[in-house]
Simulated assay, not measured.
Amino acid sequence: MDKSSAVEALHALAQETRLEVFRLLVRCGNDGMVAGEIASTLGVRQNTMSSNLAVLARAGLVRNERNGREIRYFAEFDGMRALLAYLMEDCCGGNPEVCAPVLDEIACAC
């Protein structure tokens, strides 16, 4: 990930509703969620949700699949990994023990 892409991803997540959407989709995993369900779950109008999902998609943090009239959204885990890798690229400065607590915190316990 380059600096411009990282800035776009961070900008997308720097808004409360979009951050909530992204975290919700991460929890949904491979099942994803239909746009209307996302809006209902978060108590957001559908047209507002559509705009927020578009911002997240442009930033490479969500993807969608159309099935008839439904559009199902998924967290884009490759995008999330790329952002985390970019942020931690120079983390330890040759001392891996510095990054260990951060890596332990973000490691999936599934």
Rank of each mutant, 00 (worst) to 15 (best):
M1F: 11
M1K: 05
D2W: 04
D2Y: 03
K3E: 13
S5A: 09
A6I: 04
V7D: 07
E8M: 14
A9T: 00
A9E: 02
A9G: 10
L10M: 10
H11R: 15
Q15R: 11
E16V: 09
T17A: 11
R18H: 04
R18A: 00
E20T: 09
V21I: 12
F22N: 01
L24V: 05
L24I: 02
L24M: 08
L25I: 03
L25K: 06
L25A: 09
V26P: 05
V26M: 09
V26H: 02
R27W: 06
R27F: 05
R27Q: 11
G29Y: 05
G29N: 02
N30D: 12
G32D: 08
G32N: 06
M33H: 04
V34M: 04
V34I: 13
A35L: 08
G36I: 03
E37P: 03
I38L: 09
A39D: 08
A39F: 06
A39L: 03
S40R: 14
L42V: 03
L42R: 07
L42T: 06
V44N: 03
R45Q: 10
R45G: 01
R45V: 03
Q46C: 04
Q46A: 12
T48R: 05
T48L: 13
T48Y: 12
T48C: 08
T48M: 05
M49V: 01
S50H: 00
S50D: 07
N52F: 01
L53A: 08
L53V: 05
L53D: 02
L53S: 06
L56D: 01
L56M: 02
A57W: 05
R58D: 15
E65K: 15
E65D: 07
R66N: 09
R66P: 01
R66Y: 07
E70F: 00
E70G: 05
I71W: 14
R72G: 08
Y73M: 09
F74S: 03
F74T: 01
F74C: 12
F74W: 11
A75M: 09
F77Y: 12
G79P: 13
R81S: 11
L84R: 08
L84E: 08
Y86L: 12
L87N: 07
M88K: 15
E89P: 02
D90L: 13
D90Q: 08
D90M: 12
C91E: 05
C91S: 14
C91R: 15
G93Q: 15
G93E: 14
N95P: 02
P96K: 10
E97P: 04
E97R: 08
E97Y: 07
V98P: 07
A100M: 13
P101I: 06
V102D: 00
L103F: 12
D104K: 06
D104T: 05
D104M: 11
E105D: 10
I106D: 12
A107V: 08
A107S: 14
C108P: 14
C108I: 09
A109L: 06
